[in-house]
Design a protein around this nucleic acid. Sequence first.
DNA 1: GTCTATATAACGATAGAC
DNA 2: GTCTATCGTTATATAGAC
Lengths: 235, 235
Amino acid sequence: MAEWPQETTISAFKRAWALEGEALWYTVFSMHQEKMQIKSPKVAVANLQKIFEATFKLANAHGFQAMSLRDLSRETGISMGGLYAYIGSKNDLASVIEGVLRNYIDKVIGELMNEELDPVARLRAIISGEVFMIQILNPWYYFCYMELKGLDREQQQQALDLELRFDSLLVDAIRAGIKQGQFTCDKPELLAASITAQLQQWHLKQWKFKLQQVSMEEYAKHIFENLLLCLNNRR
Amino acid sequence: MAEWPQETTISAFKRAWALEGEALWYTVFSMHQEKMQIKSPKVAVANLQKIFEATFKLANAHGFQAMSLRDLSRETGISMGGLYAYIGSKNDLASVIEGVLRNYIDKVIGELMNEELDPVARLRAIISGEVFMIQILNPWYYFCYMELKGLDREQQQQALDLELRFDSLLVDAIRAGIKQGQFTCDKPELLAASITAQLQQWHLKQWKFKLQQVSMEEYAKHIFENLLLCLNNRR
DNA sequence: GTCTATATAACGATAGAC
DNA sequence: GTCTATCGTTATATAGAC
């Protein structure tokens, strides 16, 4: 069981690994470099990391609106004025966070679509891959989910479109399985939405899974196996 | 299919019907009567309804923190000072909303536990009943889900406990079915959490279901039938 | 000595509360 | 409508690196 996710770690998610740690913050830096006044990447990256991580800590605990820039200043150790060398405005900070995550997911989805796998392996890859991504970028996912309302309409719509595109990934795999006679399913769209809902729980209900001592691998396996039962998979 | 939910409308949810419309607002009034300065129930109930519905409109659109009492005053037509005859404070307003909903759900869960049904009927009743409740009290559920962070720790914990108690309802029914040899399930707790996740989607992802033109009955049926597939129900 | 990065302090607006 | 606190924001001053 412990090896289960590794065997499905397809190429798209090796990229995810590459974006852990310092590499992630360099990506963040490069993505809104033009909006900031700091020249030196060394300084910029270090402080960006401080600012983003402090934002996650404060906003994910009590809400982004409830977090003041003075709180953020205190938490990061960067002065009020100094913060504005790194962010355009408070709202801009939330916007950048959503933008970075969406851009990142978009790339992974794009690569997943190019993978040639049979329907069962495809579904397993999507599920274990997404749980894995949520695990790595937990505070990012949680922030974007809870603070979406605070962003402008255009950005909200882009986020919803991304979720629909993710659902479509699942629907396509299910449809492929039906075509091959492997699966039976009346409402692929509804089933896909259910899977997405269960995946999102991995960041939404961390408290519950910690309480029940459920591991990432166990959870991904649970979603996958129940999905196969729903699809009447003839193994 | 259209009749599906009706056949499972057990007594606990007839209560839910009784708390639609005006009766609901009288309940709200009676629940925090002592905190307000308005004597006449007639006036109080009418304005409470205005205040709560305006809060849902504003807070569910852009967040409770982002809603100012001036917004609320404008939306309700009640002056700034006037509002304080009905609510103790802004935070108190959110607290009361969560309290009313939790109290309400608690009663329904309590009655559900007293119903004597076979495991399959029990699961169907819980699922269709909960979707039905969410349908009626949609803005309440959505508000409490999204604004839970803003409440004090004690109240947050009570909300989480309630969710665990709801999961337990499902787990008990699943376990009963296993005992009777009807069901097979390795991880009842995880399966219950998945069902809860799917139920909560009914208020969290209204945009998606409207886009896909999925009805409440259709959705409840989808959750229930896939649950039976996961339980290897031998019909 | 020059340029980048940080800190200070105060502005105007607006918040919740009464 | 008023009051006080605090918000996001910015102009300005200072400090530090090379």
